[in-house]
């Protein structure tokens, strides 16, 4: 039940970001200055943490989506749905740890280190 709630909430969050992300990318059609200025806002540490949260939502939604497919199409899927959820959470952690180390290093070293 909670995986279902989580799937809906992450889905809506990702959809809203997607609408904004197409709009900000569309600024490349306005001018290089406009795009670079707005994309610069994505590079400060607070937005960097927001991106980490967004990727966490995407990775959960992706792996839980595969679990839903397994439950729908695999004969033993419904029987093992709980174990599959633990698998989703384990894969989520395995994916997020290296992502967070890499992404947050880039965000924070460029902000505090400058260049």
């Amino acid at each position: 039940m909670w995986s279902w709630v989580g799937h809906r909430i992450t889905g809506v969050v990702i959809f809203i970001f997607l609408l904004v992300h197409v709009l900000d990318t569309s600024l490349v059609r306005v001018s290089p200055e406009a795009y670079t200025a707005v994309i610069g806002a994505y590079k400060n540490p607070i937005m960097g943490l927001g991106e980490a949260g967004l990727v966490a939502a995407i990775v959960f939604h992706a792996f839980n989506g595969l679990r839903i497919i397994a439950i729908d199409f695999w004969k033993k899927g419904p029987k093992y749905q709980r174990q599959l959820l633990w698998g989703v959470l384990a894969l989520w952690a395995v994916t997020m740890i290296p992502f967070l180390i890499r992404h947050l290093t880039i965000v924070f070293s460029n902000f505090f280190g400058g260049h």
């Binding site: 795009y35 590079k43 991106e51 990727v55 989506g65 729908d72 992502f99 890499r102 992404h103 965000v107």
Partner: peptide, 30 residues
């Protein structure tokens, strides 16, 4: 279900190339 599987490949690839490779998000400009 079909688009979900394809989107996993497309979005994971997108995130890897734009955020993980090289200078990550810091390299993104026009």
């Amino acid at each position: 279900r079909l688009s979900g599987v394809i989107l996993i490949v497309l979005i994971f690839g997108h995130l890897f190339v734009n955020l993980m490779v090289g200078d990550g998000i810091h390299a993104i400009d026009f």
